[in-house]
Design a protein around this nucleic acid. Structure first.
Lengths: 219, 219
DNA sequence: ATGAAAGTTATTGTATACAAAACGCGCTCG
DNA sequence: CGAGCGCGTTTTGTATACAATAACTTTCAT
């Protein structure tokens, strides 16, 4: 994307994720333009993307509001992600080249290094984790699938959730990745799907635990 | 959406679907603005939507081209649709109200009427078919799922494929719908999923037959 | 002839001014 | 007292002019 438009997107997104605004708060394009330091034109571009990600929503009369994600929303997104990414794993198992499998191994080595530190480097872990999943999605060779997943994968990051992953959680992830690699090496689509399924389902529960158990949501 | 922007979207989409342009042909925003009779601003809006639907694609340097869908693309979309819509059927089975089930029955009655004519009214069939699936997707109560499906469901319509559905195809669809309704009435999610799966899979083969068997695609 | 560099044209991106639509508020009239 | 109606204000939508970038063409050196 072009400079101003990309700038607007990044700035606004950061602004939303930072928690500087509260759910259901109204925003105007002018405000956002000021925040991003560009004119309304690229802001409107950015807003459309953020609407697509459901970080912003529009009232029936086109006014902009900060989205309010309920626990149901989060569960929905995890469910969809699981469904799609299991499919991706299945396809990837039938398509991954040797080189790509080697890439996965390298990435997962990096991921383990990020964990096994005096203090685990969570940012690096997340980055490697993302790279790992990206290789798989890429290998699945399904542009629409990739497009859909891109939206869903970003989501958890969005919630300013304490990243209180335990060391065990991180290590289990790494082991899941190892098993995925094994499944890929064996070109066993069923195996890959199953491992991906449990990998993501566990991630959901870890996440749900962190974000708080199913509370009664908003009055 | 606002008037000009919606106008642009509809006009350009019709233009693309009509076959007046060929795949990989370059388009400029100016051309499209002229065609739609509005300025470039709303055209850019429309173009983004069409990009999202993958009817238009951009080169690495932002130039616009008519998308070229391969058979693989079509298979991909059917596979994704099947996955998502089976999920929708499952959720719908747990959520549909009596009133909604009654709606499904009404819609399917309309659908049958459209078939059982001297000459089957395909347009009306398609409309009813769409309404039927929309009720289910709506009942699934998953906005992101709905959003994803919206893109995929439009797709087959896009291809200027001869709608040479046979009478048998149409009748089988109606029967599938009846069975779906039965599954919903019984609140049997597994049943609903299974019926939806075969319903869509058959549709794929009907479609594939119509569009021509797996040929060697472009050189 | 060939390929690189500079200049020219075509195309997309951004800012700004204005138009249209929605909102809020006070007012009137029942 | 309250529901509906104008009217000024706010907010979004559109057109247009201009800036930036990419594609194309010509020229010139080798």
């Amino acid at each position: 994307m072009s400079r101003a438009s990309e700038q607007a997107y990044a700035t606004i997104r950061a602004h939303l994720v930072s928690g500087a605004v509260s759910p259901n708060e109204q925003l105007t394009e002018d405000q956002l333009a000021q925040i991003a330091g560009v004119s309304r034109t690229p802001v409107r571009d950015a807003v459309r993307r953020l609407e697509d990600e459901l970080l912003l929503v529009r009232s029936d009369t086109k006014r902009l509001f900060v989205a309010d994600w309920s626990r149901d929303d989060i569960e929905e997104m995890f469910a969809l992600r699981q469904m799609l990414e299991c499919h991706a794993a299945e396809r990837a198992a039938q398509r991954l080249s040797r080189a790509q499998i080697a890439d996965l191994e390298t990435v997962n080595r990096t991921l383990k290094e990020a964990i096994e530190q005096p203090a685990p480097d969570v940012a690096r872990f997340l980055e490697a984790n993302r790279a790992f999943h990206d290789v798989i999605i890429d290998a699945a060779d399904s542009p629409r699938l990739a497009q859909m997943l891109a939206k869903l994968v970003e989501a958890p990051v969005v919630l300013r959730t304490a990243r209180n992953y335990s060391l065990d959680d991180l290590r289990q992830s790494a082991r899941d990745h190892d098993e995925l690699i094994a499944a890929f090496a064996a070109s066993d689509a069923d195996w890959a799907r199953a491992v991906m399924g449990s990998h993501l389902r566990r991630a959901f529960h870890t996440f749900a635990r962190a974000v708080g158990p199913a509370e009664a949501q908003k009055p």
